[in-house]
Amino acid sequence: MSGLERAPVAGASQTFADTILYVDGVTVSFDGFRALNNLSFVVAPGEMRAVIGPNGAGKTTFMDCVTGKTKPDKGTVLFRGTTDLTKMDEAAITQLGIGRKFQKPTVFETHTVETNIELALAGNRSVFTSLFWRPGTAEKARIDEILEIVGLSDRRTMLAGALSHGQKQWLEIGMLLVQDPELLFLDEPVAGMTDAETEQTAILLRRIAGKQSVVVVEHDMEFIRALGVKVTVLHEGSVLAEGSIDYVQADPKVIEVYLGR
């Protein structure tokens, strides 16, 4: 794999063997606008990381690059230190074990809650298997387990479209968890949630952290504080600062970017 040959040169000081996600020197331009500018970013196995940044900082483009929606112009994106993600499409990357939640909660509204989870179950995704596939006992138990985790057990036969905004967010997180991803991207998981829902979501995420690596993109500072994890600040397509929430909030560069000159 060509990514393997390139990577040691590009990331001279980094060891990428024990990383779950290794991003180095990634640049993406849209019509001359540099959405990502030589971005480097490393996530360790089991780590939870928060990514913040003002609008246009490149947060979504960064996720697009890792999940196969956008191909970087240059740079390295390695999964588990060996798999080059820049050569794969969304479906293949998802099947590798990288899940992604969208900013706007996106569930299958005319399916029931449990069918939503069922469709997300890990397994063969080919057309011809789908013609004859039926959930067995193990699958049903797994669906029950996930519904329990995201707190939607008593709404399982409801249509997903009838759920509240917060419940849709949890359902979508449940759809990712059921796939047992090694790496999970959550784009603004608490946007539009009430305070109580935000708190519950933080509890939910802390519960799953450790088993999975999670990257949370958020604007809500209180929520990130509640998560209590390392924070990466993006600005104009590259990393501006990295550290604990108190550390980055005290950083004069971060203050300038967030509050203006």
């Binding site: 999940t67 969304e90 479906a91 293949a92 998802t94 099947q95 899940g99 992604r100 969208f102 996106t106 569930v107 299958f108 509204e109 005319t110 399916h111 069918t115 069922e118 469709l119 997300a120 995704r125 080919s126 057309v127 789908s130 013609l131 004859f132 596939w133 039926r134 979508e172 759809m175 796939q179």
Partner: peptide, 26 residues
Amino acid sequence: SKFGRVLVSIRDAESRARFLGYRVEH
């Protein structure tokens, strides 16, 4: 069948189906 449920998923939220690992075009 499950095939049909995936079809409806594609109709309702194509990108979600794709990011669940389904090859939507197939």
